[in-house]
Design a protein around this nucleic acid. Structure first.
Lengths: 115, 115
DNA sequence: TCAAAATGCAACCGTGAAGTTGCTCTTTGT
DNA sequence: ACAAAGAGCAACTTCACGGTTGCATTTTGA
């Protein structure tokens, strides 16, 4: 069975949607930006300077964690968060798929116009 | 002013968050997959076969449109939707930025271990 | 030992997202 | 001319999200 491009894309979507949704919030996006240097930071660190409550930040981190964008580990009295690049890589591939599909169309269109 | 990587990333986020949020829903992701072949389809076409109501699909399309992931154009009694690759390209670049930041960290880490 | 730090947990609130239903309007095709 | 197709609009319901507050628990460090 040769899957169509659309099917190939659709097969990846259930997980992709979760990751996209996790990134679809400015606060969470800021947290990701803060963590993408590979550092492990505590909730207190991550909520310091922000206008939101520590609990709000904590909730956002849990959302990111349930989408596996981030992993947490308890260390003494604090829990440290670190970025997990895997899901990001996944949606990167997803976007690549959509883009390539689109590019193929453009090429066909161009060829048609020039014919 | 040499902006830090974090700042560089953060500057792009406000718009990125909107696009991510628009893609953060299985139904909308399916619509994008359906449109990424460059075709222009009507609401009736796009809601055909789906389990949701035509109005539900219509709403989702409007969400995608307000995030500029999709453009619409009225043609007679139907409105046709077509993918707009620009925002997709934007978040692609965004992800590229995060990934490169992460990769740089890995390299540093590797260099440190091997030293 | 004990106070402060860091977090977790639970209840609560307001708002908007997602979806449906019902109606109207315009366009199409016969 | 008129029925059917396609879509828009508005009202409504449900429910999850984002956020806060208050309190309990564990850990740390002096």
């Amino acid at each position: 069975m040769a899957a169509s491009a659309q099917t190939r894309i659709a097969r990846r979507s259930p997980n992709a949607a979760v990751v996209f949704a996790a990134l679809g919030d400015p606060t969470r996006l800021a947290l990701v930006a803060r963590l993408c240097d590979g550092s492990r930071r505590s909730i207190a660190q991550l909520s310091d300077g922000q206008s939101l409550t520590r609990q709000a930040i904590s909730k956002h981190l849990r959302v990111l964690e349930s989408a596996r964008v981030v992993r947490s580990e308890r260390a003494g009295r604090e829990s440290l968060f670190v970025l997990n690049p895997q899901p990001i890589e996944d949606i990167r591939n997803y976007i690549e798929l959509v883009s390539s599909q689109w590019d193929a169309t453009l090429s066909r269109l161009k060829a048609f116009v020039e014919k």
